[in-house]
Design a binder for these strands. Sequence first.
RNA 1: GUCGGCGUGGCGGAAUGGCAGACGCGCCAGCCUUAGGAGCUGGUGCCCGAAAGGGCGUGGAGGUUCAAAUCCUCUCGCCGACACCA
Length: 815
Amino acid sequence: MVSRPRRSVYVPQEIEPKWQKAWADQGVLTAADSSPKPKFYDLVMYPYPSGDLTVGHARNYVMGDVLARMKRMQGFEVLHPFGWDAFGLPAENAAMKRGGGLHPAKWTRDNIAKGKRELKLMGILYDWDREVSTCEPDYYRWTQWLFLLMLERGLAYRAMAPVNWCPVDKTVLANEQVINGRCWRHPDVEVEKRDLEQWFLKITDYADRLLDDLAQLDQWPQKVRVMQTNWIGRSVGTEVDFAVDGMAGESIRIYTTRPDTLFGATFMVLAPEHPLVERVTTEKHRARVRDYVEKARKETEIERLSTEREKSGVATGAFAINPVNGEKIPIWVADYVLVTYGTGAIMAVPAHDERDFEFARRYDLPIREVIAPPAGPQKMLREAYLGQGKMVNSGEYNGLDSTVAFDRICDALEKKGLGKRAIKFRLRDWLISRQRYWGAPIPVVYCPRDGIVPVPKDQLPVELPEEYRPLAENPSFYETTCPKCDGPARRETDTMDTFIDSSWYFLRYASPHDPAEPFDSELANHWMPVDQYTGGVEHAILHLLYSRFFTKVLYDAGLVAVTEPFVRLFNQGMVKRFGQVMSKSAGNGVSIDELAGSAGADAGRIYEMFIGPPEEDVEWTEAGLNGVVKFLQRVWRLVLEPESVVAEGGEAGVSAVDVSVLRRKVAQTVGKVTEHYDELRFNTAVAFLMELANTMQDYLRGGGARDAEWDSAVRTLVSVLNPLAPHACEEMWQRLGEKGLIADAPWPVFDPAVAAEPKVVLVVQVAGKLRDRLEVEPGLSEADAVKAALASEKVRAALDPQGWVGGQWVGYTGW
RNA sequence: GUCGGCGUGGCGGAAUGGCAGACGCGCCAGCCUUAGGAGCUGGUGCCCGAAAGGGCGUGGAGGUUCAAAUCCUCUCGCCGACACCA
């Protein structure tokens, strides 16, 4: 049965396509590079074109769109671009897994087309003229160019690195593709560790700046800044040389953050990969040490780094001399020491380090306390004491505070040339080589005569061959000539990590078609920095750290004027359904087509904003969506058919909303909604709009005239609702007889004088308890307020018999 | 283990030192009816009460304050990140 609307009813399907076309035809969100208006760069993290876009993914795009539309109405020239992180393992894997032999390029481009259509269906406006796709040669040409820039600046280098290797596929795997130590495609094949020469970027050169500049990012979530701080992991300590006993000239350099515990070192530990292991090991211990090192190398990274596991190690038979007291201490090899951090060797102070303590207990090594806790020396050493305290068992330093001894010991070591202060970072250089087809080829050539030769910039891009097959097995790709000597040479067959593609895409948007350079510096400097960057918290470290690194390198190269790319960062929550993150593959996704075909894109947009706080994960429900549909329908009627709102038979007794209340509510709503959109507090912004609609309805019911005041209220409601529900608002705007698009209409101006309440409620508390509420003039003096309060029967009753608390006025609320 | 976040009605949530529960969902009662997955009115934290009114109430226990969901200490629970970085 078809329900028969008696009035013109809001039918989203009839209006949404029409306005989407109008916006596209009029280029509504096309950003002009030269505009007298102030710029606003509104960016959302571009996605992998994985083809499973749902209303869940659309949520953060809607956030960006609401802001873009408001900023535009407020008179900003808004840059709101979109693009595709189209290269990389996810695209390639998906092509292999789901595409049934489909070429990654075809698969990717098809998904881009699908995704683009769906975003338009949601009414999200991007400047599609600026769309970038990282897998296209006119994009990755510049990714390669930037790699060469890194190379020129000494920031790209080759080095041996242990990597995860799948013996069946004959390829390196990303960490994410190693599941329980096995290849994701061959669950019965264990991944091997291999040493391979790989390309790295020297992000560690920028560790200090990446850390220090976090302080400027005061509009980033605290959480992300803390995560980056921890990831960079700056520590202050000392390097100390321990001579190897009986081996003249041989010494082991260690790094410690606690030189004050030097007297407590009772053994030393080398990482299994430490180059001195072979040399210091005595004949008697050689076989056991070799076994141990061999075993350690076979273990996966995950096993090696597990803190759960009991520590293991072997003695080398060698001894070292503690430089502060001449003591002979044994040298061990143990895999709890990492060759990649510090110097790959440590002095072990079991009394004051948990890990050394555990190891000493296991192998029955001595434990000597050298820092006494404030409560005095521990009689029974049951656990390591990590804090500061008075020095004991430390020769001339005894009795000093350990924080003082720290510096004295460092000074003494430096004077004798046995050590020096050092700063270490946890951050490692960025391994960017990927043995994959679907990526930007690293633009270098290996020449037997000239060695590593960069491909000249004017010969870029090094294009991916059409044929989908490993580059290292494709002679027509790798067989080439040396750009220097013209002799036969071999191309690099590794491609770049996709995080490189995404480390600069926000700059390409400034001049996406520039044929001569990655971006036009002048335009980049015009649009940068990004004013609002919205995306998932899963990129808190990787993408955001890499982008910051790239920006700083480009700043140093004089190509951009900013040192930080993103002024304000926002991490939105995920949309769940039936308790699980919404996705097509999980089978709980709501597609954008479904939404547009039922409740409509506008209701979907409002619902995505109203569903909960933007940073929280939220649960999608049909009931919640329905509530928003009803709200939109009510607005529709208020705006277009106010006569239908007043029920037949009059509305006597309806709470009176007179015109001054209406006028005030409208002004207050403008103020609050503007503020809350700006702060991305969309859920409460929607609530304010609902309140306004309720007030307007009450006004009509109470017999309010549909005069100029009403007309103004209606237009204001439509204007401030527009960023959330742009199709419906365009339609209402037109039907109201307004000329032009509401997308181009000016944003209502907040007038605090109109918004001010003529009367306020003075809430009187006595001894912390609410006693009365009085209607008073706003801004009345303290004395008058007290007087008014004391005039209240209820207040006086509360005061008696104890009297006025403290005998004085302390404050009031409800202003 | 370390760091961080979060605990508020039946539900999503609002309030960031000053009226707890805005707004919405759901539910209850009623109205209207073209009988709908529609619209409207009123109610809806808990307890006592016919009502007026009173008491209690933001995971728990203390504390600071005239005043605490909000600040502090401890504690329980859930979630997230990092996890041998010397």
